[in-house]
């Protein structure tokens, strides 16, 4: 058993690009669900439409990289408007149904054989990250003992954590303002807010767009850090992992999604590495009849699910949440 490898895997994942993608996506969900109470189950849709906005612009249409970024962000905004206009006047559940359906529709369109010329079919698109990679100032990767990153990852985490920091700052600035107060009030009781002369629909739309833009940034960052845009990456699991990260950290807290995402990936990678080692080699720690090497990679998800259940029972407010706020719930 090599604990160094386990710790390296856990910390590298917690600080690495994958955690950043989920942190950004969860920041968006925090605006939607945590602050405004909008049930967006299709964050993966916002991610995929922005990602393919960039990839299609650069690869298919052969346009500049920065124009692709703009197209990607605009696509996320447009998606928010298209989803919001019919559903935000209705009860919260409708948004949930429509968003999850839309994210699946988008994923299937991007992976469809019929649109192979545009979206690249199930293999997706690549060759759009050249500009991003050329901006990399680092000469080599780093190995700090407990964490190690390749040259590309080092560049990605520099860009990624900067984006997370800017996004968190923006959320902090917005949520302490009267604007943020209106969002939180809408989460509590829409009609009360309406009776005080606030245009609830407009605020929900603004929140949906803002959170969708964070989702778009997450999607673009996701395809840049790996250099390819693959439709199957953007399945519903993506959204639910982001929700898991948000709930672990604590909804309606600025740093909740960020810390939640780090913990999520720390545990996923750490537990995965532990069980993979415990079941490999000539004389494994866990005997073959108990767990085989192929089962080991799945056990982390079982444990994660168990962990989430325990969290919801014993600390429903997440790491950062305020117990008092939760205690009042259900009236």
């Amino acid at each position: 058993m090599d604990f160094g490898t386990i710790i390296d895997a856990a910390f590298s994942a917690a600080l690495g690009p994958q955690a950043i993608v989920f942190a950004l996506a969860a920041i968006g969900l925090n605006v939607h669900f945590g602050y405004t109470g909008l049930l967006n189950f299709g964050q993966a849709g916002f991610m995929s439409i922005a990602a393919f906005g960039l990839a299609v612009t650069v690869v298919t249409w052969d346009m500049p990289f920065w124009l692709g970024i703009v197209v990607g962000m605009i696509a996320a905004v447009v998606l928010a408007l298209v989803l919001g206009i019919p559903t935000l006047r209705l009860r919260a559940d409708y948004l949930a149904i429509v968003t999850i359906a839309t994210s699946e529709i988008l994923r299937l369109i991007f992976g469809a054989v019929e649109f192979k010329d545009t979206f690249g079919g199930s293999n997706g698109l690549n060759g759009f990250a050249g500009t991003y990679q050329r901006l990399n100032p680092y000469g080599d990767g780093v190995d700090l003992g407990i964490v190690s990153f390749s040259r590309n990852d080092l560049w990605s985490i520099t860009v990624g954590w900067t984006l997370v920091a800017i996004s968190s700052l923006l959320v902090f600035a917005l949520m302490r303002s009267p604007w943020g107060r209106v969002l939180k009030s809408i989460r509590e009781d829409e009609d009360a807010v309406r009776s005080l002369g606030k245009n609830v629909f407009a605020y929900k739309m603004q929140a949906l767009v803002l959170g969708g833009v964070f989702g778009g940034i997450a999607g673009i960052f996701h395809i840049l850090k790996q250099g390819s845009a693959v439709p199957t990456d953007f399945n519903t699991t993506f959204t639910f992992y982001a929700y898991a990260a948000l709930l672990i950290g604590g909804a309606a807290r600025v740093l909740g999604p960020v810390v939640g995402s780090m913990i999520f990936w720390f545990l996923i990678a750490g537990i995965g590495s532990f069980f993979s080692q415990a079941t490999s080699g000539a004389d494994p720690l866990l005997p073959e009849w108990l767990m085989t090497n192929t089962q080991a990679s799945l056990i982390r998800f079982i444990l994660l699910g168990l962990g989430l259940m325990l969290l919801m029972i014993f600390r429903p407010q997440g790491i950062f949440g305020d117990r008092r706020e939760i205690a009042i719930d259900g009236r």
Partner: peptide, 25 residues
Amino acid sequence: TKVLSKLTVIENMRLGATGQRGEKF
């Protein structure tokens, strides 16, 4: 009654004020 449970009393009150510049995105 529709009070906003998870906001403080003073925040409930502030929400009522009209024409707030800080409520614009």
